[in-house]
Design a protein around this nucleic acid. Structure first.
Length: 280
DNA sequence: AATGAAAACAACCGCATGTAG
DNA sequence: CCTACATGCGGTTGTTTTCAT
């Protein structure tokens, strides 16, 4: 067989239609294996890895190319990621027509979106709107954070009414926001927008006792000042979380990302920035 | 219509694992 | 067993497309 290219040459970058055709023909003849022979036989100037990737991600039959993840697919990814972690290949096996790369890309986009939303919520509105000045995770200047009240958080027995989330995973900002659950109590479909627009997010400094780490539990975030199950029960009592599409929120041990990523992306669509009291 | 930001997509790299010789 | 090679996986980066202003 005559070589069609310099055997030291390795082509990278986008695949041409001709290359795809050669690859498809190879699979028809030999099956989806022996990827390296495409190069050693002089058929393609690509590495075996590159050939395999092209076949698996783009050329093999029954792929759902070019269509967005359905709500059901998103649900499956979210659930399986929570259960399995970043095992994209295993997750993809439960999604016909999707590849591990598809799942990985979807999750990456979702994660970036969440991070950006969190960052925006911990930044004042004028910063958010500054063109060309996208807030960078972990760079919330300390002086922009109003004096807070970690003591109040500790001492106020009503603190268990707060639904909190850690901002630390976007870069140890040492700031996290609290949303007062009673403000969101039982939003009806008619007044949902009105109720949620009244929510005030109060930036607070991290509890002195809190030590950021890659692994912690929601309990650790609140304990020992707050009984988590009481918090959850109270939340359920005052706040209908079903509109978030959740059966409940994860209170189990999780890593910093895992905690947040159990929430659907669109949950933040229901929240909007409210001016801090000092800005009103 | 132009522009910048965000989202989606494609492909590479390094590393781990499996396997044949 | 050891080694070399093939394969598969997950992380990352670069490019293209879509969306919003």
């Amino acid at each position: 067989m005559e070589k069609q290219f310099d055997e030291t040459y390795i082509k990278k970058g986008p695949w041409s239609a001709e290359e795809d055709e050669v690859l498809i023909n190879h699979v028809k003849k030999h099956g989806s294996r022996d990827w390296s022979s495409l190069r050693s036989n002089g058929l393609l100037p690509r590495t075996g890895k590159s050939c395999r990737l092209r076949w698996v991600n783009k050329l093999r039959p029954n792929l759902k190319g070019g269509c967005r993840f359905s709500a059901e697919e998103e649900r499956v990814v979210i659930e399986l990621q929570a259960a399995l972690g970043n095992k994209w290949a295993k997750i993809a096996k439960h999604l016909p027509g999707r590849t591990d790369n598809d799942v990985k890309n979807y999750w990456s986009s979702r994660r970036k979106k969440l991070e950006r939303m969190l960052q925006q919520r911990s930044s004042p509105p004028n910063t958010q709107k500054a063109k060309g000045k996208t807030p960078v995770a972990g760079q919330v200047p300390v002086e922009e954070v109003p004096a807070c009240s970690s003591n109040q958080f500790v001492e106020d027995p009503s603190c268990c009414k707060y639904f909190s989330y850690p901002a630390s995973f976007v870069g140890n900002t040492e700031v996290f926001n609290l949303v007062n659950l009673p403000d969101l109590a039982k939003p009806s479909s008619e007044n949902l927008e009105k109720d949620l627009s009244a929510v005030e997010a109060t930036p607070l400094q991290m509890l002195p006792s809190f030590e950021p780490s890659s692994e912690y539990t929601f309990d650790q975030f609140l304990e020992p000042q707050v009984n988590l199950s009481a918090c959850r029960d109270l939340a359920a009592e005052h706040f209908d979380l079903s509109f978030l599409g959740l059966d409940g929120y994860n209170t189990q041990s999780t890593d910093a990302n895992g905690f947040f990523e159990n929430f659907p992306t669109d949950m933040f669509d229901y929240f909007q920035y409210s001016p801090r009291s000092s800005e009103q």
